[in-house]
Computed example of a mutant assay.
Amino acid sequence: MKTLLNVIWLLFGGIWLALGYFLAGIVCCLLIVTIPWGIASFRIAGYALWPFGRMVVDKPGGVGIAATLGNVVWLLVAGIWIAIGHVMTAIAMAITIIGIPLAIANLKLIPVSLMPLGKQIVPTSQPFVTGYR
């Protein structure tokens, strides 16, 4: 079922969403100072490409002060706008019965798009891998 939902997701928006995050990652990496956000954008792009069967967890060891400050900057500069985009897209997807799981997947992207640093994407079958508790 996860594979079927991922294929439907990919066809109805996932590919464009992933390409957007990938492009943002390239831009962030080109600007040198914003490389941590670029790496986070690449991570989110992979998640946006194939979201069903995966989840976001905090990295082992907690989030340091640098990641916290970076998340605040990201939230103010881009995170809030990306989250609003996810909500609007989720509303559009939820109009049809088939689109409801896609809308839920879109809403699952909001927390990582708001605060991407200090996060890791893991399979849902192993949410508590050693060090991820």
Results as ranks from 00 to 15, higher is better:
Ile97Met: 11
Lys119Ser: 07
Trp37Ser: 02
Leu31Thr: 12
Ala18Val: 04
Ile121Arg: 09
Cys29Gln: 09
Pro60Val: 06
Ile44Ser: 00
Ala92Gly: 10
Ile104Pro: 00
Ala67Arg: 05
Pro111Ala: 13
Thr96Ala: 06
Val122Tyr: 09
Leu31Ile: 09
Val112Trp: 05
Gly79Thr: 01
Phe12Arg: 13
Leu23Ser: 12
Val112Gln: 07
Pro51Thr: 09
Ile32Thr: 07
Ala94Ile: 10
Leu19Ser: 10
Val87Lys: 03
Val57Asn: 07
Leu75Thr: 03
Pro127Leu: 04
Thr130Arg: 10
Ala67Gln: 07
Val122Ile: 09
Trp9Glu: 01
Met55His: 04
Ile97Gln: 13
Ala90Leu: 06
Gly38Trp: 03
Thr68Trp: 05
Met1Ala: 07
Gly46Gln: 08
Met88Gly: 04
Ala105Pro: 06
Pro111Arg: 03
Gly14Arg: 02
Ile84Gly: 00
Ala48Ser: 03
Gly85Cys: 04
Ile8Asp: 01
Thr3Tyr: 02
Arg133Glu: 15
Ile95Glu: 04
Tyr21Asp: 01
Pro116Val: 02
Gly13Trp: 13
Ser125Asp: 14
Gly13Val: 07
Asn106Lys: 04
Val56Ser: 13
Ala67Tyr: 06
Leu10Lys: 02
Thr96Tyr: 06
Trp9Leu: 10
Ala67Phe: 05
Ile80Ala: 08
Ile35Lys: 11
Ala83Ser: 08
Ile97Asp: 07
Val7Lys: 01
Asp58Thr: 14
Ile121Lys: 05
Ala94Asn: 04
Gly25Val: 11
Phe42Ile: 04
Thr3Phe: 01
Ile97His: 11
Trp9Lys: 06
Ile32Pro: 00
Gly25Cys: 08
Gly25Tyr: 14
Val112Phe: 02
Cys29Leu: 15
Ala45Tyr: 12
Ile8Ser: 13
Tyr132Leu: 09
Ala94Pro: 00
Val7His: 02
Leu23Asp: 12
Gly13Ala: 06
Val112Thr: 10
Ile98Gln: 12
Ala83Phe: 10
Leu23Thr: 14
Ala105Thr: 08
Val77Thr: 11
Val63Ile: 14
Cys29Asn: 15
Val27Ala: 15
Thr34Met: 07
Trp37Lys: 13
Gly38Val: 06
Lys119Asn: 07
Trp16Leu: 11
Gly25His: 10
Asp58Gln: 11
Ala103Ser: 12
Leu109Met: 15
Pro127Glu: 14
Ile104Met: 00
Cys29Lys: 13
Met115Asn: 05
Gly118Ala: 13
Asn6Trp: 04
Arg54Phe: 12
Val112Lys: 10
Gly118Ser: 11
Leu10Val: 01
Asp58Val: 10
Asp58Tyr: 05
Ala45Trp: 09
Leu102Tyr: 05
Ala40Trp: 02
Phe12Glu: 01
Phe128Trp: 11
Thr96His: 08
Leu76Ser: 00
Ile121Pro: 04
Asn106Val: 00
Lys108Asn: 14
Ala83Thr: 11
Leu69His: 00
Val72Phe: 14
Val57Gln: 05
Leu102Val: 07
